[in-house]
Design a protein around this nucleic acid. Structure first.
Lengths: 230, 230
DNA sequence: AGTATAATTTAGGCAAGACTAAATTCAATA
DNA sequence: TATTGAATTTAGTCTTGCCTAAATTATACT
């Protein structure tokens, strides 16, 4: 109740949220690796986060942690901040999409609720960040999505890119060069089962391109109805 | 050389810069009062700041401190950040000018040089913040100004408002309501020596207004040539 | 079941930056 | 010059969040 959470606990909450939504819970060593601190430090911090009022995590020795409602709310708040800031940096300040993450990582901890709201308004209350990640709403609801990895498509399926993996700047630069951006629509016309390569054509490009699984597993799509009009 | 300065030392540098440009040096208790910490904590911090490499301050017991070149550079960097952010919040995010200070106070410590540069570009490399304070240039030069307190004007002098005191939100709201904003031009038509009140008329308003010294001492102006054209 | 190995926790420390209480120094005045 | 009060500094603590080393628990394999 004494105001803000420390930046350290916010960072823990973010990672725990991510790990828990992926694996159901987060282990000490996963957290340690992600935050680049030693496991002993994590244990220590988790114990504190479980004991404050209200508790941010549920912690039992040797069983990993999960977020309490209070912890999840704080995590979603950070997620909203982070993604709004990324979009703001991209749209308003002209940052390339592979450079927004680092800046957002620092800003997310210090912006006020007022600034969050002002940014959202200037951006037209956006639903997704530059990488297509869904932005939690003002009241911290995270709308469910249906997208799946591009690697699961087979000819002659058509799809629209919704979202790309956002934590690898090299990948992002590469995707941009290829034109694999959110909103782009494409047709798969060949699948090579040996290596999993996909041959695709983007609607707004003439030349087809060949994608390995390093890429197709990091790009997430939805089906789109009907063939491309000629 | 290990990267950034701590937020705490940046805060100390800011205050020392301000006090030193006003009084030539900064005393322990002045700093303590401004930062709302105890004098003992200040002594402690000053000793550290004088001992690191490169030293940020010159410190000798019982004699107050002044900034070294390294300290002054860091202070000006903060000043540039702060004022650019204030202007950005006002111009781009629509903050009222009495609400920018607090947000800037937190953001100034975390923005990158890249973000500083992008904000400056979006704003057209501005010279002054919303309160009229000069923004240090990219290479941290602070251009000298000639403005003086409005309270020193006498009828029938004319002047343009350059800058207002920026640390009192109530004052700022009041000034805005009166129309006493940077760029506004005015004519003084009466001075009351008893209480120092000034009767002025703003060029773009019909009604004259009467200002006490609480206000006229906080508004800074330059002379402007020639009478207002009717 | 019993043991090696990996993961986790405990215990004890450290640095930053705040605090309080006590000691010291400065400055002003009798 | 001696005194007194204010300012400053010293000394010792506290909290946060990290660390290393050692102890413990869990897991997995024979």
């Amino acid at each position: 109740m004494d105001g803000r959470l420390s930046q350290a606990s916010q960072d823990y909450l973010k990672i725990i949220y991510k790990l828990a939504s992926q694996y159901g819970r987060a282990t000490t060593s996963q957290i340690a690796e992600n935050l680049e601190v030693k496991p002993a430090s994590v244990t220590n911090m988790l114990q504190k986060m479980a004991q404050i009022e209200p508790p941010l995590v549920r912690y039992k020795k040797h069983q990993g942690v999960s977020l309490t409602p209070a912890g999840e709310e704080a995590a979603l708040e950070m997620l909203r901040h982070h993604r709004l800031i990324e979009l703001f940096l991209h749209e308003i300040l002209g940052y390339p999409w592979d450079e927004v993450h680092e800046e957002a990582e620092r800003l997310e901890h210090v912006i006020s609720e007022k600034m969050e709201r002002r940014m959202a308004e200037v951006l037209g209350n956006p639903m997704r960040d530059p990488h297509g990640q869904v932005i939690p709403s003002h009241d911290l609801e995270l709308t469910a999505t249906t997208e799946f990895p591009l690697s699961e498509l087979r000819p002659p399926q058509r799809a629209v890119i919704r979202r790309v993996h956002d934590e690898d700047a090299d990948l992002l630069r590469h995707l941009e060069q290829l034109g694999l951006l959110p909103q782009a629509t494409l047709t798969v016309f060949k699948h090579v089962s040996f290596d999993g390569n996909l041959h695709i054509k983007l609607d707004d490009q003439d030349e087809p391109i060949v994608l390995g699984t390093q890429i197709t597993s990091q790009v997430f799509v939805d089906f789109v109805a009907g063939p491309q009009l000629p």
